[in-house]
């Protein structure tokens, strides 16, 4: 086929936009060793579909010139190009790549701010801190979500207050949920009020996240609140609370966990059996022995494992 006998460089320069686009798609799998210099000019292609493919093909090539060329394309007139740019920028890994992105963290459209915030998150650069703190007040919930994400990754002590505030008051439940997860970098006791308050959030997803984060942080002081969460209307929240109580080796939670061993939801009985094994207190033996007759084989198995863990711990 004559078109395939053309060199990739010739195809990239074809007057036919479709041929140029195909050449860009083929380039990463061609014999060309160094594809970046061939792709950069195509970012300026007059055809948006060619630009989109060129952006996608540059994913994972984190040279300074690539990032500098891609960042301004967050303002490309074509929506598909902008989406591709956002995705590729969100794959960046090196903190050195952040500089060209900083100007897009504020101003511009909500979409641009959101994509730029998402792109700097994993780079964990100090320069993103102030813009992210500002963006917590953004009118757009999507922007606030990404801002919270940036602060969670940055893990700076001075953001805890602001994140706690967002977790308590943001009108968007997904923003609140992410904020609760984001607090999970600080095991300071000061985060405790925010997390325990979140255990009573109106959204069960927020409560679920809070129950999980308390376990991740091993915040023993939260054991009473987690025990209350074992009465949550949503069994999903109870499962997370049981998981955290197990991780915390919360002997005080024995009664509520043993009670959960008889709950109608199998997943909760399973989690309770695991937690009782982790706590390894012999007082749980009768309840676990009863669970050996559970209708759910998984519960029976995990109860047997928990009983073994208890007997090993007593040695």
């Amino acid at each position: 086929m004559e078109l395939q006998t053309l060199s990739i460089a010739d195809r990239l320069a074809s007057p036919d936009a479709e041929v140029r686009r195909l050449a860009v798609i083929d380039l990463p799998y061609s014999d060309e060793d160094d594809i970046v210099p061939l792709l950069l000019p195509r970012l300026q292609d007059s055809d948006a579909t060619v630009r989109t493919e060129a952006v996608r093909a540059l994913e994972g090539y984190e040279d300074a010139e690539v990032v500098e060329a891609l960042a301004p394309m967050l303002l490309d007139p074509d929506a598909e190009v902008r989406t591709a740019v956002g995705l590729v920028l969100s794959e960046l890994k090196e903190s050195a790549s952040a500089a060209p992105l900083i100007p897009f963290l504020s101003g511009h459209s909500a979409e641009v701010r959101m994509l730029a915030l998402r792109a700097v998150r994993a780079l964990r650069v100090d320069a993103a801190f102030a813009p992210a703190m500002d963006a917590l007040k953004d009118a757009d919930a999507g922007v606030r979500r990404e801002a919270v994400g940036v602060l969670g990754y940055l893990r700076r002590a001075e953001a805890i207050g602001a994140l706690a505030e967002i977790a308590a008051r943001d009108p968007d439940h997904e923003v609140r949920r992410i904020a609760i997860g984001a607090i999970g970098y600080s095991s300071e006791v000061s985060v405790l009020p925010a997390l325990t308050r979140a255990l009573s959030d109106v959204s069960w997803m927020v409560r679920d996240e809070a129950a999980q984060t308390l376990g991740k942080l091993r915040l023993g002081l939260a054991i009473p609140e987690l025990m209350r969460a074992m009465q949550d209307d949503y069994w999903q929240v109870r499962v997370k609370a049981a998981r955290s109580l197990g991780l915390l080796k919360a002997t005080a939670a024995l009664p509520s966990l043993m009670e959960a061993l008889a709950h109608p939801i199998g997943n909760l009985r399973k989690e309770a059996a695991i937690a009782l094994g982790e706590i390894a207190d012999p007082r749980a033996i009768p309840a676990l022995e009863k669970a050996l007759d559970d209708a759910d084989p998984d519960v029976r198995k995990l109860s047997r494992l928990a009983l073994t863990a208890i007997s090993l711990a007593q040695k």
């Binding site: 086929m1 078109l3 479709e18 041929v19 195909l22 050449a23 798609i25």
Partner: peptide, 26 residues
């Protein structure tokens, strides 16, 4: 299908090599 423009993507990616370009219809 734009195989006539030099596209062989589907032919290339098939792990079992069961696709081809028809030389007449292209």
């Amino acid at each position: 299908c734009i195989a006539e423009k030099g596209c062989t993507v589907c032919v290339d990616v098939c792990p079992l090599d069961v696709l081809a370009i028809d030389m007449l219809t292209r």
